[in-house]
Design a protein around this nucleic acid. Structure first.
Length: 910
RNA sequence: GCGCGGGUAGCUCAGUUGGUUAGAGCAACUGGUUUACACCCAGUAGGUCGGGGGUUCGAGUCCCUCCUCGCGCACCA
């Protein structure tokens, strides 16, 4: 039942009301529905303890738009929500809390620590779900999954076991990126290279075989001298050729170390001599391997030096040790010089400290189906939007290295490997790898480590459904919803997450196979379209961050602008694929648009009779048979154009343009022109156009609501119901949005035809009105509503159009009378396609001002004519350009010349 | 070093395959309460499309080159 709208729109009451109604009704539930096409999006799971920030607002608004559009189109839409345990991030937070209490995870022990972590995630978790609800996210909350749920954990362990059995997972001892703060290994992707200002120390080592002779060596890390087990030069470096095979003295602890030749050394850098510390540098490690140099690890896991570095360094923190080592070199007279130096240092992304290459034993994944993952994108089975991200993705895959998946953390899925007690743990014969563990656990010890967070989230598109399982329901749902329709995320996790999901989907969602056909790829990929959006930055282009305090709380913005206002605002300012400069001012447009929509509907309600709105057929029936008047024809043709435009924008993922299209159509075309023109027809109920004008309004509003609903779900739902469109209390999502061509044929079947030529005439009428308004403004009578206008029509047809639209022209231009004349002299006028419109001034015309204005216009037209005629005189243009372009140019020139002549005449008549 | 993206009105951005006199929103300015809306209405002004060269009948759009800003990857101790 339609209800009367309040004077102003209040999102604070309307939005929560509808959200609750929706959720209670189960209308967000995504179910297998035979006969309906599925449309699935898996949410990029936010951190379980995370709070909603602007990035989430953008990401989830976009997802909700696609999901709700799918529902309005009659698909079975499933938006699958959940949260990620964020192993390292969460553990860091819990440990921080423990430190504040004066304790630590080690003191607590694994079991107690995990209790605390669970407690933490229970307390802080779920907040973001509430916030997403407030934003209007239409997730199927029944299904919400957490990556630490028992069932999900089993999926993760099952994937480990499966990949192990298929030979992709192995254990290896090598240099890893070690984070001394979190004391865990990290993957290459978790290391961020940052330029650092430091020192380059040039020192000298004495040659053992030639006392008194020294080689000079540059280093940025003197604290690792104690781990040096060699010195290397380039094999073709003549300066040092005679030294290769000899030895030099490592100053402390003093020892002889060999001089080797290796191609990894850059001749031209520094002195061309490299100190080799195999245990603390990747390049050095490789050199060491090639020359059988021993490894001396001089550091503890926490970044302090150990006993091997000598008594005076033992227990000293690494940066302190650097200074001490430098001082000691000075003392020994071995320092040659120290200069300021900037180089790139790897930082732990989470803990923010420099990582330490460290030798340790870890679990690695050799990525499966790399070739297929490339092929999926190269062949367009999986498509990035914008397309340029394909290159980034492929580049990463082309340089892919095995992934270190074990973490020395406790919060996460514990690696499902057991080692036989008392046996050689390095021998796989003594391993037990399974989801449930050995049957005689007393004889085994489980691996202490957990898996990298991303090693669990990369299963998200299928593990959430219960994979792997023999349950027919799981199979049925996967068959129906998987591969999912699209993924919406930021470019910052293309490597971390997107690429890995594709590879795990390819490997795990079917039988073990060495190679896949294109068809198999098509069935196994986790999604078909990847919509990559930019990051939100502040108005100065800086990243939003807590420390800068430049990140607004989305809930404050919702308070101010409403969730719908914020949603529209953020989409409206988000250019496709590049970063978004956020400013609150730019969100206002969303709130203003809500208000406009509300008021336009309120205006329509005041005219009465909205109870006849229910079905599309009802409205179309009210139009049937009668011929559409000009503006009605025009706005309906604009509606069909707009609908078609939006269909294209959805298919091309142009959400930014979508917002503009909707805004322009509803505000610029419907409110500013149609409604204003319709006022003239609504003035009297006897006006023969009265009922049709109402029906046209109803048709436009109905479709605007349907088109806008994905972007602004709450207000459109409220209006859908208040304006009487709801059938038996049904939601707008069941409104059955037709395509532009479907709607066109529905109208045609009812005898309502949209006439393109008629619509073009109205565009001309609009132009004439604008010209009249401009002339009035020029003479400072813009606000007078009783002026007289004269029109000298261009031809009979134009005259007829003006006659036919006389009352709306009067209304919209603000004139009491309009007279059609053969000619008019001595009055200011403007030229339009239909003819010249003059302003009748009772007072004298400011001839000089008018001359200036017209001369300026004349000048502009002359320029255009010159360009146009020059073009047409050019035989090359006439011969080579396609005929329609030449005709267009000719027509253009004629029109412009006519306009020029008319203005010249006006000017002359003054 | 390799790669990607941007440089169009004061600001933020559109500008499909090259084809009318390059658009929008905001800000500015002028004038306004008319059957909803000042979160409004009407109007005005503002751009040699980063520079240079080329292809073409025709270039904001294609090619080359340079400048400039941002980002990613790699990395020499």
């Amino acid at each position: 039942m339609p209800t009367e709208l309040n004077q102003s729109y209040d999102p604070k009451t309307v939005e929560p009301k509808w959200y609750q109604t929706w959720e209670e009704s189960g209308c967000f539930d995504g179910n297998v529905e035979a006969g309906k096409d599925p449309f699935t999006i898996m949410i990029p799971p936010p951190n379980v303890t995370g709070m909603l920030h602007m990035g989430h607002v953008l990401d989830n608004t976009l997802q909700d738009i696609f999901i709700r559009r799918a529902r309005v189109e009659g698909k079975s839409a499933l938006w699958f929500p959940g949260t990620d345990h964020a192993s390292i991030a969460t553990q860091v937070k819990v440990e921080k809390a423990l430190r504040a209490e004066g304790t630590s995870r080690r003191e607590l022990g694994r079991e107690k620590f995990l209790e605390r972590a669970w407690q933490w995630s229970d307390e802080h978790g779920g907040i973001i779900f509430k916030q997403l609800r407030r934003l209007g996210a239409s997730c199927d909350w029944r299904r919400a999954r957490f990556t630490m749920d028992a069932e999900y954990q089993r999926s993760v362990l099952a994937s480990f076991v499966e990949l192990y059995e298929r030979g992709y997972i192995y254990r290896g001892k090598r240099l890893v990126n070690w984070c001394p703060a979190s004391q865990t290994a990290l993957s290459n992707e978790e290391v961020e290279m940052k330029p650092q200002k430091g020192k380059l120390y040039k020192m000298r080592y004495e040659i053992v075989e030639e006392p008194g002779r020294f080689v000079e060596i540059s280093t940025t890390r003197p604290e690792t001298i104690m781990g040096d087990t060699g010195v290397a030069v380039h094999p073709e470096d003549e300066r040092y050729a005679d030294l290769v095979g000899k030895h030099c003295w490592r100053p402390f602890p003093r020892a002889e170390i060999p001089i080797v030749a290796d191609r990894a050394v850059e001749k031209d850098f520094g002195t061309g001599v490299l100190k080799v510390t195999p245990a603390h540098d990747q390049v050095d490690f490789d050199i060491g391997q090639r020359h059988n140099l021993p490894l001396i690890d001089v550091m503890n896991p926490d970044g302090t030096l150990n006993a091997l570095s000598g008594p005076e360094f033992e227990g000293v923190e690494r940066f302190k040790a650097r200074q001490m080592a430098a001082a000691k070199l000075e003392e020994l007279g071995l320092m040659v010089e120290v200069e300021d130096y900037e180089n790139n240092v790897g930082f732990s992304e989470r803990a923010g400290v420099p990582i330490e290459p460290r030798l340790s034993e870890q679990w690695y994944l050799k990525y499966p189906k790399v070739e297929e993952a490339k092929r999926a994108v190269e062949k367009g089975i999986v498509r990035f939007h914008p397309k340029r991200w394909e290159k980034v993705y492929l580049h990463w895959l082309n340089n892919i290295q095995d992934w270190c998946i074990s973490r020395q953390l406790w919060w996460g899925q514990r690696i499902p490997v057991w080692y036989r007690k008392g046996a050689d743990a390095s021998d796989p014969a003594n391993w037990h790898v399974s989801v449930d563990g050995p049957e005689d656990p007393e004889n085994w010890e489980q691996d202490e480590d957990v898996l990298d967070t991303w090693a669990s989230s990369n299963l998200w598109p299928f593990a959430t459904f219960g994979w792997p399982s023999d349950d027919p329901k799981v199979k049925e749902e996967l068959d129906y919803f998987y591969p999912t329709s699209m993924l919406v995320t930021g470019f910052d996790i293309i490597f971390f997450w997107v690429a890995r999901m594709i590879m795990s989907g390819l490997e795990l969602t079917g039988n073990s196979k060495d190679a896949l056909t294109d068809e198999e790829i098509d069935q196994r990929v986790p999604f078909k379209d990847i919509f990559i959006h930019g990051l939100i930055r502040d108005e100065k282009g800086r990243k939003m961050s807590k420390s800068l305090g430049n990140s607004p709380d989305p809930l404050d913005l919702i308070e101010k602008f409403g969730a719908d206002g914020l949603r529209f605002g953020i989409i409206n300012i988000a250019p496709s694929g590049s970063d978004i400069l956020f400013s609150e001012e730019r969100i206002e447009i969303g709130r203003n648009f809500c208000t406009k929509l509300w008021n336009a509907c309120r205006f329509r309600q005041m005219a009465g009779g909205v109870s006849k709105n229910q079905r599309l057929d009802d409205i179309v029936g009210r139009l049937a048979g009668s011929e559409l008047e000009g503006y009605g024809n025009w706005i309906l043709s604009r509606l069909l154009e707009t609908m078609a435009e939006i269909e294209g924008q959805f298919s091309r993922f142009e959400m930014h343009a979508l917002a503009h299209t909707l805004h322009n159509f509803f505000w610029g075309d419907f409110c500013d022109w149609y409604v204003e023109a319709a006022k003239a027809m609504l003035q009297s109920e006897e006006d023969p156009r009265h009922d049709a004008a109402l029906a046209v309004s109803d048709l436009v509003i109905r479709h605007t609501l349907l088109l806008l609903h994905p972007v602004m779900p709450h207000i459109t739902e409220e209006l859908w119901s208040s304006m009487g469109y709801s059938v038996d209390g049904g939601f707008i999502q069941d409104g059955g949005l037709l395509t532009a061509s479907e709607l066109k044929s529905v109208l045609e079947k009812a005898g309502v035809t949209i006439d393109a030529a008629g619509a073009a005439q109205i565009e001309n009428v609009k132009e004439l009105i604008s010209q009249a308004r401009a002339t009035k403004a020029e003479y400072n009578v813009a606000s007078k509503r009783d002026v007289t206008l004269f029109v000298t029509p261009k031809d009979n047809e134009s005259g007829a159009v003006v006659e036919a639209n006389l009352d709306t022209i009067k209304k919209l231009a603000g004139a009491a009378t309009i007279e059609l004349r053969e000619s008019v002299d001595n009055l200011p006028g403007s030229v339009s396609a239909l003819g010249t419109v003059y302003l009748d001034l009772s007072s004298a015309v400011d001839v000089e001002a008018e001359k200036t204005r017209l001369s300026k216009e004349l000048e502009k037209l002359d320029k255009a004519i010159q360009a146009g005629s020059g073009k047409l005189k050019n035989p090359n243009f006439v011969d080579k350009a396609p005929p329609h372009v030449v005709d267009g140019a000719r027509k253009q020139l004629e029109d412009t010349e006519a306009k020029r002549d008319e203005i010249a005449r006006l000017l002359g008549s003054l």
